[in-house]
Design a protein around this nucleic acid. Structure first.
Lengths: 347, 347
DNA sequence: AGTTAGCACTCGAGGTTGCTGAGTGCTAAC
DNA sequence: GTTAGCACTCAGCAACCTCGAGTGCTAACT
C-alpha cells in the first residue's frame, strides 16, 4: 500500500494532536479539530490502513490511535518543517548564553539550562573532548623535599596535574632532566596519541637509570593524561519529566532519574553518537534502558577539532521540530563563542 | 504533667512501630505487639495524655497516633540506644571504603555510596574544606610566548592552576621574579588568610612597575585561590526516597529531587552546620524547604584541621539510631584513612 | 467506487454506595 | 487506677453504574 497525500495529512494531524495532548486520537476529534474535509468514517478507514502499515497503534479496542515509532521516524525524516526561531527567541538565547559567563565550563552549563527551559525536557551539555588537543609541555616541579607536582599543559591552555610523593628526595637537576625529556617526547602529540605510545618504555628511556621514579612518575603521567580527557556533563531540568502524563507513575520516574544519574555511562552513550543533529526514537536507541525515550543530540566544535555535545532526553512524544531547531541554533552559537574564547589572543 | 516511666515506654513503642510501618499506631496493635502489660484502654488514656503534652498527633479522629517532631527529638536526645555495629558490618564497611580506592575524591564518593546503601536514604559526602590548608608555593610558568600558567600548591599537595593569556610577551626573568615574590608573600599563610589579605596591594608591590600584569595576574590569583576552596559534593541514592510511602506523591518526590539538585545551595547548608553528629528534625531545619525532612550530618577530619561532612536526608520517620551509628563509624574510618593518606611519607 | 450515516459494541474514567476493620472517647464496673 | 463494653468515626476497598469517546461493519448515497 502507498502513503497517499491524504494518509500523510491524517498521520501528521494525529502526530500533532498526540504530541500536544498525550491522549489517543480518535476519528471524531480529528475531523472536528483539523480541516481535513472528510468525515470521521472515512478517517476511520484510512486510520485502519495506517495501522496495517505500522504507523499507528491501538492501546485497546475502543480507544483512539497513537503514532508508532515508525511514524515519528517518518515525521522527523520527511514531514517535519524546520521552523526558524523568531528573532526575539534568538536574541534571548544569545543574551542568556553570554551574560556573566567567563569560562567555558559556565557557558556549557548555561547551555544545558537554556535548552531544558526552552524544551521543557531534561537537557544536558558536555564539555568538549580533548582527544585532539596537542600537548605543549610536561613539567615536574618541586614542592618540598619528597613531593613533586607533575603538570601537563596543552596547546589550548588546559592544565592538568598530580602531586606525587616520592620515597627519596630528588634534586632539581633530576626534575629538570625528566621534564625536558618528557616534553621532548610528547610535545606536539595529541593526548590520544600520547596515551597509545608505550609510555613506560618512553619514560624509562627518559629516566635512564632512575628506575626508582618509574613506579611513581609513569602511573601518574598516564593518570594525568587521562584526566585531561575527562569531560564534564552538566544536566538541567531533571524533574521536567515529572509533569508529563506518561511518567505519572513512580516506577517510571524512578527508572528515569536513576538512568540519567549514572553519568559516566550516560556520557559514554553520548560520545558514541554521530556528529550533527541526531534523533533516535525509542527502540532505535541501542540501549535497552532507553527504549522508552527519544534522545536528540547535536555537536558543537572548538577550533574545528574538539567536539562537545548537547542534547535532550524525553518521551518519544516530543516536539521534534522545536527541539531540533533550538538545538541547531544553540550549537551554532556555542561554536561561535568558542572561536572567540579560544582565539582572543590572536587580535 | 510528668513523663512517667510507662508513658516513655509507650512513646518509644509508638515511635518504633511508626518508623517501621509508616502507619498511625493504635492502642490495640500496641498492646498486641508490644509487651507493655496493660490493656488497650489504659494505653488510650496514656496516649491521650501524650497527645496533650505534644508528643503525639492525630491525623483524624478515628485513626491511630503518630509521633510529633518533639517526640523524635526526645527520642534522639534521651531514649535512643546507640547500637554498636556488628563486626561483620564494620568489616564490610571498611573493606568497601578502601577497596580500589586510590584518591581522596574516590574515598569520599564511596562513603556516600555506602551510607546510602546502609541507610536506604539519600546520602551525600563532601570533600574536605581547605580553608586551613597552608600555601607552600606560587609559580608562574611559561607555556608559549603570551600564555602562562599560574599555579598554586598547598602543603597538603593540592594543586590549583589557571592559564592566562597576556597582551604582550613576557620574559622568563619576569615570571621568575613574580613567582618568587608571590611565594615569599604567601607561603605559610592559610588559603583563607591569603584571601583576606589585600591581594591587589601585595601583588602590585611584587610586580613593582609591571602594572600591566596586575589586571591579568591579580584576578586569576584570586580565582585560583577560590578554586582551591571549592568542595565537591557527592550524592548517592537519589531515588531511595521513591520507595517510601510518604513520598508516594509525584509532587513531593519532585520537590525533593529539585531541592537536592541545587547543589551549591545544599553545600552551603551543610557547611553551616556544627561539627560532630548532628540531627535536625523537620522544622528544626532553618530552611523552610527542608521542614518535611530530617537531616543527619557528621564531620570527618583531615590532619585535625580540614573538615569534611557526610550525611543523609530523609523523612522525619527514620531509624535515627541506626543512621547515627553508621555515620559515626564511617566518619571515624574516613578520618583514619586520611591520616594514612596524607601522612604516608612519614614512615 | 469511494464516501458517509447509522448502529451495535467496547472500554476507561469517574461517581455512588455500602461494607469492613481499626481506631477513638466515654462510662461504668472491677 | 485499670479495664471491659459500647457507640461512633473514618479511610480504604470493592461492586456497581453511567457516560463519553472510541471502534468496525454494513448499507445507502453520490
Amino acid at each position: 500500500m502507498e502513503l497517499s497525500e491524504r494518509k500523510l495529512k491524517i498521520l501528521q494531524a494525529i502526530i500533532y494532536d498526540f504530541v500536544k495532548t498525550a491522549e489517543p486520537v480518535g476519528s471524531r476529534t480529528l475531523s472536528k479539530n483539523y480541516d481535513l474535509g472528510i468525515s470521521p468514517a472515512t478517517i476511520r478507514n484510512e486510520m485502519s490502513d495506517l495501522e496495517d502499515m505500522g504507523y499507528l497503534s491501538h492501546p485497546h479496542t475502543s480507544s483512539g490511535r497513537i503514532p508508532s515509532e515508525k511514524a515519528y521516524r517518518l515525521y522527523v525524516d520527511q514531514m517535519m518543517d524546520k521552523r526558524e526561531l523568531t528573532d526575539m527567541q534568538k536574541n534571548a538565547i544569545t543574551a542568556r548564553l553570554h551574560s556573566n559567563v567567563t569560562e567555558i565550563e559556565n557557558l556549557v552549563e548555561r547551555a544545558a539550562q537554556i535548552l531544558s527551559e526552552m524544551t521543557n525536557l531534561t537537557a544536558f551539555a558536555m564539555t568538549p573532548r580533548r582527544d585532539e588537543d596537542v600537548l605543549s609541555y610536561v613539567n615536574l616541579l618541586p614542592v618540598d623535599e619528597k613531593t613533586v607536582v607533575l603538570m601537563i599543559v596543552s596547546q589550548s591552555g588546559k592544565v592538568s596535574n598530580t602531586a606525587l610523593r616520592l620515597r627519596k628526595p630528588v634534586t632539581q637537576e633530576t626534575l629538570n632532566f625528566l621534564s625536558k625529556h618528557m616534553t621532548y617526547n610528547y610535545k606536539g602529540k595529541t593526548i590520544s596519541e600520547a596515551l597509545t605510545l608505550d609510555i613506560i618504555e618512553t619514560v624509562k628511556e627518559d629516566a635512564e637509570s632512575m628506575a626508582m621514579y618509574e613506579e611513581t612518575v609513569v602511573p601518574s603521567f598516564v593518570k594525568t593524561l587521562e584526566d585531561m580527557l575527562n569531560v564534564n556533563l552538566y544536566m538541567d531540568g531533571y524533574t521536567n519529566i515529572f509533569s508529563l502524563p506518561e511518567y505519572n507513575d513512580m516506577d517510571k520516574a524512578r527508572t528515569f532519574i536513576e538512568m540519567i544519574n549514572r553519568k559516566e555511562e550516560f556520557t559514554q552513550k553520548l560520545i558514541g553518537r554521530d556528529d550533527g543533529v541526531i534523533v533516535t526514537i525509542g527502540n532505535e536507541n541501542q540501549d535497552e534502558s532507553m527504549s522508552d525515550y527519544s534522545l536528540v543530540t547535536a555537536t558543537y566544535h572548538v577550533n574545528g577539532k574538539q567536539v562537545g555535545k548537547i542534547g535532550v532526553i524525553g518521551p518519544t512524544r516530543m516536539k521534534y521540530s522545536e527541539v531540533t531547531s533550538v538545538m541547531e541554533f544553540l550549537t551554532d552559537n556555542i561554536s561561535q563563542a568558542f572561536k572567540l574564547t579560544e582565539g582572543d589572543d590572536d587580535e
